[in-house]
């Protein structure tokens, strides 16, 4: 096995080498997308279940595309009309799915720990597609991949994450992955959205947006969940935009090379102004493209794929579908 675990639960669990291995494989898969036929037969005959207990459109489509481009057979489990709603436990549902003989399960769940739990009780490989506010490792990997495409080695680079850090699985996965690669991470947001203990995960806390962006190489802007307003966590969108919204004015305080990322979906003119979202500094759609490549790499490696087969100019393992 190239990766030590049969599952991908979080970037906290991966070594620096494992992260780099996944990213290299992702770069190899990324090259396929520019060909007329974007499909390889690597996962032919294998079954992957997309088990989305919490609604998600983008992540599910990204995984589904990754699986299809690897020629896997796919089942999409729609939780909204599932037996989980009829009182069945997560374990029972998952064991039932496994009993139908599947190779891999991609899980999105609102509860932190759900993916790790399934990893423990199931023999199939489990990929965490987001478990509550805990981790979203493939998002972290695609963010890092996008940063490396622009910056090369991330050692010593400065990444500023802006938004609702407390509720963000993206922030946690970014912090774990980036610090393992030697980057310095600053988190910024209203004090009610930045828990004090986040510093102990390896990030620097800065509540002043202009100071937080001053030497940054990248801004990673998180989505503000509008329902948090009803929990009194912040006064409202207008106030948030005034204090923490990334606008062209804010970008004037950054280095000229600093670029902007967002995991989507965006609330335009709340956490990011439309001018920035559509401007020359953003790489948001590159993130989306890289997302498919990263997910192909993770699926490939977890199913026992050898990254050396993908390496070099020939990229022997990445043959086009005949």
């Amino acid at each position: 096995m190239i990766l030590r675990s049969k599952d991908l639960i979080g970037l906290e669990d991966l070594s620096r080498e494992e992260i780099l291995t996944i990213l290299e494989a992702a770069e190899a898969f990324r090259t396929i997308f520019d060909r007329p036929v974007r499909k390889v037969p690597i996962m032919r005959g294998r079954t992957v279940v997309n088990f989305f207990v919490e609604p998600s459109t983008r992540t599910r489509i990204s995984f589904e595309l990754a699986e299809k481009r690897l020629s896997a057979d796919i089942v999409n489990f729609d939780a909204s009309n599932s037996s989980l709603k009829k009182g069945e436990t997560l374990r029972d549902t998952a064991e039932n799915i496994q009993a139908m003989k599947i190779d891999m399960i991609v899980v999105r769940h609102s509860s932190p720990g759900a993916a790790a739990y399934l990893g423990r009780v199931l023999k199939a490989s489990v990929i965490n597609a987001g478990d509550g506010a805990h981790e979203h490792p493939t998002q972290g990997l695609l963010d890092i991949m996008t940063m490396r495409q622009r910056l090369g080695d991330l050692a010593g680079r400065k990444v500023t994450i802006i938004g609702d850090i407390a509720q963000s699985r993206v922030a946690r996965s970014n912090i774990y992955g980036l610090t393992k690669l030697g980057a310095e991470v600053t988190v910024c947001g209203p004090p009610t959205m930045v828990p004090a203990a986040i510093a102990r995960l390896g990030a620097t806390v800065e509540h002043d947006l202009k100071r937080a962006v001053a030497d940054a190489d990248v801004l990673n802007i998180l989505r503000i969940q509008l329902e948090r307003q009803s929990q009194m966590v912040f006064p409202g969108n207008r106030e948030y935009h005034l204090m923490f919204g990334v606008t062209e004015e804010v970008l004037r305080h950054t280095k000229p090379s600093c670029f902007v990322m967002h995991p989507g979906p965006m609330n335009r003119d709340v956490e990011i102004s439309s001018a920035v979202a559509d401007g020359p500094r953003q790489v948001i759609l590159e993130q989306v493209t890289n997302g498919v490549a990263v997910r192909m790499a993770v699926i490939y490696l977890l199913s026992g794929g050898d990254p050396r087969q993908l390496g070099g100019g020939a990229r022997a393992g990445v043959r086009e579908e005949e």
Partner: peptide, 11 residues
């Protein structure tokens, strides 16, 4: 408990 572990675990 609100502290290091709740922050880390996302609970």
């Amino acid at each position: 408990h609100a502290g290091y572990w709740s922050t880390k675990l996302g609970l």
